[in-house]
Nucleic acid binder design. Sequence first.
DNA 1: TTGAAAGCGCTAACAG
DNA 2: CTGTTAGCGCTTTCAA
Lengths: 367, 367
Amino acid sequence: MTEGPRPRPTLRDIATALGLSVNTVSRALGDKDSVSAATRAAVQAEAARIGYVPNTLARSLVLGSAMTLGLVITNPSNPFYAQLISSIELRVRAQGYSLLLLVTDESVENEQRATEALLRSAVDGAVVVPVQAEWDHWRRVRDSGIPLVFVNRDVPELGCDMVGVDYERGSYEATSHLIAGGARRLLLLEEDLPITTTADRITGFRRAMADAGLKVSDDQVQAVPTKRYDSLALPWQPEEAYRFAQTLLTDAHPDGHPDGFVTGNDYFALGLLRALAERDLAVPGDVAITGYGDHPYAAYLQTPLTTVRLPAAEVGTTAVDLLLQRLRAGTERPRKTLIRPELVIRASTGGPPALTNRQEQPSSTPG
Amino acid sequence: MTEGPRPRPTLRDIATALGLSVNTVSRALGDKDSVSAATRAAVQAEAARIGYVPNTLARSLVLGSAMTLGLVITNPSNPFYAQLISSIELRVRAQGYSLLLLVTDESVENEQRATEALLRSAVDGAVVVPVQAEWDHWRRVRDSGIPLVFVNRDVPELGCDMVGVDYERGSYEATSHLIAGGARRLLLLEEDLPITTTADRITGFRRAMADAGLKVSDDQVQAVPTKRYDSLALPWQPEEAYRFAQTLLTDAHPDGHPDGFVTGNDYFALGLLRALAERDLAVPGDVAITGYGDHPYAAYLQTPLTTVRLPAAEVGTTAVDLLLQRLRAGTERPRKTLIRPELVIRASTGGPPALTNRQEQPSSTPG
DNA sequence: TTGAAAGCGCTAACAG
DNA sequence: CTGTTAGCGCTTTCAA
């Protein structure tokens, strides 16, 4: 119990114990065919006996590959990213790689430090959810020969592979759905981050409105002011949308109050629902609402929430697959993949009041 | 653009360029004082010019430390664990270490493979949320000299450091709170995993009941049958608690229907709320409810949920600190720390109907 | 089939 | 202050 940990066994320990050369032991363990069956058996027995575990560090140094991939992500507390982490880790591990995790918290500075870490650790490649504000540091990583796959948000300037969600389409469908349900005075509540996902949803909203022959004034697209993103706390604060909506609903609306809200985030929908309830506005009677993300609680709100379900697992595994392909194959053109999200219709837009069965969820679970 | 990535620069590149020895370059970059100012400046300039980044692999090999910690966790989609990941990653990075992530998905088999990976990667230590069903593989890791800190769940047999939450106390307080509010026929809805967190909550429930002079029959402690844990999907399915509660509320209750529910999980509370609403039972009028976890939505449900808030960030940073201390100091007695959770009282137990302000949340944010 | 030698990139110990 | 030597643990030549 108090006995200090012995230094971990090496190939040499096995070699000397068996009167062999380090080299032979290495080959015996490596399943090369240039070793006699007897030797191999002896080596393996001795290895097992002393609990030999190969030293990846030394192995990587000579092989020139650490068999490690990096995952650079903004905020694990965002359920979408949490699922992404799971699916990526699973796939990476299944392919025999290790996963180095770096959290950026939407900070460019953290991201720059993350790239340093990737470089130093000599990862073979990285899956990245970029902050998007700057990307010179990513250029440096790419130029040093580390393949990158951007996830959820692209950095087109770098010409790397990319896997994302078709946010524009999701937003388009949500908006169209509200319009089809009779809403005319729509309002979009969006995140106020300078990222393409938000921009894409705005585009989808505008396009749906245009396709329906509805005009969009500037005050129909609102950015909910958000405190500094903090992955130690929540991904988003429902409270911010709540306060924002309180004001919004108090303001004079020359053309009448909004009768439909598209939100860029289920948390916004949550805050909004509260604000509406306080003003005795019925959902979906007076106002219809869509969320975005299909968070676990969405189906279980008093008024189950119509929302856009994101294919997190599929995005994650696709990203890893792209990365590994590029690791093997050489230089091809960058591939950009957008995976289609799914509008889940529930009571908040007049859908069935009963809960939407979670088991419908398409299983993109690998293996 | 099509130019292949040059091999990454090494110390030797700098040395030959400057007509110095590799060793001198190493010292110049390493800020040792045994280098002339001029040489150091020249070396640093050249290093910057060619974009030299030290190779951690080689460095680790000779130094005998990879400056890497492992994080073995069950399910990132559980908001508590998501916050744990963030806080741990932040702290680990702040201390100059890298973080290797392994997800076990509550599977012993995955956990065993994870320990292999930790051993091979030669991590300096690991923060572990153990599956708890078996632990021989952890013994092996510990015996090979890799310090372990168990988080949230302990494996007392191994005598490692441990940081957790005082689940028993949280449960005790929630139960006592319900009793104080007048509830007498209480029911506990718990997870059906064979883990200590669940067991501790059951203990807390029983103790609170006993302290109030209330008897607890076997059918007052119920385990909600759960599908195989799947970190690719949800941490828990509200639906399971919903269906379970449906049955529960239909069953005959000789002593009258329950008037208070303690749940081991906010998701269970969510499903339960739905089932109660469908039977026109008012919360908290007919039935009072407590959740566990204070998930982001808890404050924003139609009936804001009284729940137990978990100190995730504090647990995470404490775990890393313990691990690093042990890495530096030698063999002390294992330290076990339970951090106290906080009962947040809301409308589901007759608390204020207005939202509980999230900003009250104690900030255990480091640095 | 096995061994000897060389080297991955870096740092520590010792000379000079 | 700087260079030489040695070695971390492993794998890949090349001989024997």
